[in-house]
Measured scan of single mutants.
Amino acid sequence: MDETGKELVLALYDYQEKSPREVTMKKGDILTLLNSTNKDSWKVEVKITVNGKTYERQGFVPAAYVKKL
């Protein structure tokens, strides 16, 4: 869990989004878990840094590609 009590997951593999509802992640990324009720895909939040500014983006990733921490 992070400092706000949200559950975290670790990306086990790289994943490139295939639709606007998904998010891209790299192996080793730590993501905030938002919903894990679907056995196939979990909703997560990723933090992306562009030019020194951090943005948050929500979307789905394959459940088999992440592990709860």
Rank of each mutant, 00 (worst) to 15 (best):
Y13R: 15
K68N: 05
F60W: 15
T24C: 08
N35V: 07
P20V: 08
G59Y: 05
A63Q: 03
L31N: 00
E3Q: 13
K67S: 09
V44E: 00
S41V: 14
L10V: 15
K27V: 06
N51R: 07
M25H: 01
G28T: 01
E56S: 15
K47A: 08
T54E: 09
S41K: 11
R21L: 14
E7D: 10
L34W: 03
Y15E: 02
M25R: 00
V66R: 00
Q58L: 04
P20E: 13
Y15S: 01
K53W: 09
S41R: 14
I30C: 07
S36L: 04
Y65V: 07
G5H: 12
E45P: 00
V61F: 02
P62A: 04
N38H: 09
S19A: 08
V66D: 02
V66N: 01
L34H: 02
V9Q: 01
T37S: 14
A11W: 03
A63E: 03
K68I: 12
K53E: 12
L31R: 01
K18G: 08
K26A: 06
E22S: 05
Y55M: 10
V66T: 02
V9E: 01
W42D: 00
Y65A: 12
K43S: 05
V44S: 00
T49C: 15
I30Q: 03
Y13G: 04
G28I: 04
L31Y: 07
L10M: 14
Q16F: 13
Y13E: 09
K27N: 03
D14G: 04
N38F: 07
E45M: 15
L8S: 07
Y55R: 06
V23T: 02
Q58C: 09
S19I: 04
M25T: 01
D2C: 15
P20F: 07
V23E: 01
K47I: 12
Q16T: 14
Y15L: 01
T54K: 08
T49F: 10
K18E: 09
N35R: 05
A63T: 05
M1Y: 12
G52R: 02
V9D: 00
F60T: 05
V46T: 09
I48S: 05
T32Y: 10
D14R: 00
Y13W: 10
I30F: 05
L33W: 02
E3R: 11
K27F: 04
L31T: 00
S19D: 11
K39F: 08
Q16D: 13
P62W: 07
V61D: 02
G5I: 13
P62R: 04
G59R: 00
R21W: 15
L10I: 15
L8W: 13
E17G: 15
V61W: 03
G5L: 12
E22Y: 06
P62Q: 05
G5E: 13
K6V: 13
I30K: 03
L34K: 03
L8F: 14
S36Y: 06
D40A: 08
R21G: 15
E17V: 05
K6H: 12
T54D: 08
Y65R: 04
K18I: 06
Y13S: 07
N51L: 08
K27Y: 04
T4K: 12
S19P: 04
K68V: 12
K67Y: 08
K26Q: 08
K68T: 07
K18P: 03
L12E: 01
